[in-house]
Design a protein around this nucleic acid. Structure first.
Lengths: 203, 203, 203, 203
DNA sequence: GATGAATGAGCATTCATTCAT
DNA sequence: GATGAATGAATGCTCATTCAT
């Protein structure tokens, strides 16, 4: 399953990409405000700048839009994450830098990530599977970085810590009403990094 | 806002409570399977064991059901959490015991908690506020326990750690497809407790 | 497959029957004018005297309406046909009387029969099968009457003649623009009976 | 109304004819399978081997396609019928031969004829009129052959018999699920001819 | 002449909510 | 208090037709 498995009746690949970008943009805007279910296809079309008929030239069902959105969001997170993970010299400091970058990325994409938490289960099983695989990939990436930078950490711990870090990133977003009143992003990052470093050091 | 603010046209308080219990039970069953939006009021009525007309004698709108459910779930978590937090002798060990109990509670209520993550934003603002307050209370409770059992911890750290623990509990549920394949609940708890203890000890 | 296999969400059997009668009546009126495809469900609801929502309390899909209509029409033809076929004294004359009655029945239901010719293939295969079976039953009935009243006729001829008669009845309706300008019903019947008698006599 | 009254924005007559042939061919294929209403213009274009835009260069509305198809079908039947009706020596035998040929033609065009039965009423009134006229012409042709070959037959009987024969031909197609299981074409023709001859002889 | 992307009116169907019994 | 039939606004989706390239 990939982006291109969503069937479009339009042939011009370039145009498909362009229109879908508009669509994803428009849909994200709306999903942030009202969620997937309360957003109508007409609203998506309008927000995307074209008619309902045109919308359906590029997708088959409303769920396709959700998939496109979810795919785009994780694609973005993943690509940003990937670029920062080319380890020059593995070291605890380097690990900390990467985690920090990760926290900054998810801060930047807070609302998109909240969409993921709320809407993924609205996708059909196979599509959900595809999305979860993407998550797994990201956590795996973190895990590998941990193992490389802190070779003393056991595999299982690396795994669980990667999950913890992954979720602590999201948490900054989905608990922002609690956290962002008390902490600045800098502060949040500093403290979480301290805890993580402490854990890893004393394992 | 409280449970009793949902207006019912029925007078008999005892009956209201009975019917609502049925309703909440039925709704939770359905929400677990299909989510709030894909569950119809008819289905809720049927699952609850009465007619659609009767359902509407005890609520005003479909959203009321969601509120009742959400309220019941957090009420349950909170009450279970509260009973275990009567500190006899504050100590790090005692803290660990409490956190462990918390993890067991949320393990027990995994699916209910997933409902919370997915559906809370479907509530209207004031209702959301009410729910978030309940969350705040719970995190506060954890925070106070931390401060009592580990007096050396700074307030801010206690706060953030309480949030971390709170979410790590939920995470066991909402990332179960990733975690529960690799870890048993025992294992999960043991490791997370180790990390937490390590952090607190070295702060 | 029978009338009762169309699922209704209403429980009161008496009411179902009443509403469906209204519905069939309304639908037939519209199908005569515009055919099945050009008739909207809203029009059917309106013509039947209730709202679109109510319509859907008594059927599942638009095709159900068509089935109900088709079933009702053939049910009517068949029942009228059946009542006239209790052979007292088998004789050629008696056969002629029965055929005459048949011609009068289909004259009376011309437009309904035209609906059958045009819309049956819009039904799904199993439903079509059910309808064709009803046709087979009717032709069989005619065949048996022929064999009883004209024992010298071979089975195969009885079969084909029954089909001929069956279709000649319909033809009076679906070719009315050609036939009914030139012949009165009396005349039409008289001539066709003459031909049939002639054929049977000389077989 | 004739074929050429369907307005095309293309000038080249040769091209128009070529494209329309493709179109009719494609449309018939589809109408056989799904009927007129369930066939989309896009499908017709595709099946015809050109784009939807091109389709609309050669017709004005979807109904035009139906007209073209209906016109082509009756044109074909009529032309085939006409070629076989140049009476050398009028005789009852000759009449039988012609009727036999007619039965063979309609056997060959069964499915096309079924389209006629089902879709003609979807045409607008004037177009229907045009089609019915073609039918009238064909029946008239049969009538004239009858009168020529069997001069003793009264006009009215010739008329009705022509109608009977005309419909008995179609019936072989539209009741094929009943007839073609029991009779071969040869058998069907033989028996029907026997009946007809019998009727004509004893009138 | 050919193409196919764009359009939006139109349709079947659903479902929260009401209210007479 | 309980029931369930009735309602109709709302929604996802289709498809004939147009028109710029």
């Amino acid at each position: 399953m990939t982006n291109t498995e969503i069937i479009s009746s339009v042939k011009d690949e370039r145009l498909i990409e362009k229109r879908r970008k508009q669509m994803i943009q428009g849909a994200i805007t709306l999903f942030k405000k009202k969620g997937f279910h309360k957003t109508t296809t007409r609203e998506i079309a309008k927000e995307s700048g074209f008619s309902i008929g045109t919308l359906y030239e590029y997708i088959r069902t409303k769920e396709d839009v959700l998939f496109l959105v979810v795919d785009a969001i994780y694609g973005e997170v993943q690509s940003r994450l990937t670029t920062m993970v080319n380890l020059e010299e593995p070291s605890l400091e380097h690990l900390m830098t990467i985690i920090e970058s990760y926290f900054r990325v998810v801060d930047d994409m807070q609302e998109e990530i909240i969409i993921m938490y709320q809407e993924v289960k609205s996708l059909k099983k196979p599509t959900q599977e595809y999305v979860l695989q993407k998550e797994r990939d990201m956590v795996d990436m973190l895990k590998r970085v941990i193992l490389t930078c802190a070779p003393n950490v056991h595999k299982e711990d690396a795994d669980l810590l990667a999950n913890n870090i992954f979720v602590q990133g999201h948490m900054w977003g989905f608990r922002r009403w609690a956290l962002q009143k008390q902490f600045t992003l800098e502060d949040y990052i500093k403290r979480q990094l301290t805890y993580i470093k402490s854990v890893i050091t004393h394992l």
